[in-house]
Design a protein around this nucleic acid. Structure first.
Lengths: 210, 210
DNA sequence: TGACAATGAATGAACGTTCATTCATTGTCC
DNA sequence: GGACAATGAATGAACGTTCATTCATTGTCA
């Protein structure tokens, strides 16, 4: 098979969503106009309406896509050989794949939108719950938890702290004055991950900092 | 002298800002119209323009006010008798004074705005730096730090983690389906604070959970 | 030719902002 | 005190612009 797109409709949708995330991150959901998106995608305004009912639907589809991405990420984290490495995957992928700052800005905007759009809030809450359950499970199965190296905290409590830190770092990202390189950002995130890991789980490993 | 307000101008500005934060939290900076704000304040649209050059200036003034509030908060935290109590003040005041969810939504929106408005980003970064310096200082002076109970982490590293968790909790707040009571919210925040404190600083105190 | 993909000018609603106008209050003079 | 002038806070209709959305038209391929 060459690359016949079995669903050219899906390709168009993806093309539009790809453009949309760039515009949303650059201007915010409501500041980004449909003309901006169509220009970014290199198509006409009207065509967007062939694939999405309206702007809300584009935002909704973006949130859905984000959900799938998070689930993929969690699956990858699950397959890591150690808990630390799982956490490293979770903490670095979230902000370092693709365009770094675009992702962060989009997620912060998504939460801002969630604060006043109950539909988006439901979706984000659902994603978050799934991801947190995944990490809770990851912790439960880890040797660290089985060896009682968790300071008496329950896996779900640790998971909550881990996600709080992850969100907090994400928020900080959007303040960064100019683009860091993906490598710099990754290094910084790894440092935080290790620091957090060494605090949350008892370690006879190395004395904290890298 | 009876109670002649020496600066009625400031009162009007405050009245407008009070209305603005409600509208901004409810609809977001750019979704809240000047008409919304004037209606909430119970005045006419035109009057807003007597006290603020334009909408941007209202947003800027809100951010400035937030800066002052944070500095007050830090001052209060500084006066607490112990590090744990300082942290409790920092973690609870931020979300529990006044209207709880309004504050959180406003701050998340502020960060979203910062991601694309360099002027706002500068302001938020400045506030954050001041606050973090304050907490770093607080930690440095604490008995915990002097007794080497900080897991080998520097005060500023601990401060970074503390603020990351605080921001992360704030983001989570906006997902809460319906308003919690201030008391519930406070209880939850205190639990997280204690959990974090017991992880960051070595404790022969009580075994973690309340 | 017919069916469908794609265009982009046109539409109307909503927005930020302006400004001519109103009117309660204050000051001034007899 | 009473008549009148001056003030400027407050109003809200109106303006120009932007935006989401529509749809008549054009392009494309089988």
């Amino acid at each position: 098979m060459s690359q016949i797109p079995s669903e050219p409709v899906l390709d168009r949708r993806m093309q539009i969503l790809e453009a949309a995330i760039v515009c949303f991150a650059k201007h915010g959901f409501h500041q980004a106009s449909m003309h901006d998106i169509s220009a970014e995608a290199g198509i006409s305004v009207g065509l967007i309406y062939r694939y999405f009912a309206n702007k809300e639907a584009v935002i909704g589809a973006m949130a859905d896509r984000h959900k799938v991405e998070i689930q993929d990420l969690l699956e990858r984290a699950r397959q890591a050989p150690s808990l630390l490495e799982s956490l490293e995957i979770l903490f670095t992928a979230h902000c370092c794949e693709k365009a770094p700052k675009v992702q962060s800005a989009f997620v912060v905007d998504l939460y801002a939108e969630a604060s006043r759009n109950p539909q988006i809030a439901d979706l984000v809450r659902d994603v978050l719950q799934t991801a947190m359950d995944g990490v809770t499970d990851l912790i439960s199965r880890s040797p660290e938890a089985k060896n009682g190296a968790t300071h008496g905290l329950e896996p779900h409590e640790l998971s909550e702290l881990i996600f709080a830190v992850a969100r907090g770092m994400l928020m900080r990202d959007v303040l960064q004055p100019q683009e860091m390189t993906a490598a710099e950002r990754r290094a910084r995130q790894l440092e935080v991950t290790r620091r957090l890991w060494s605090l949350l789980f008892k370690h006879e490993y190395e004395p904290a900092l890298a």
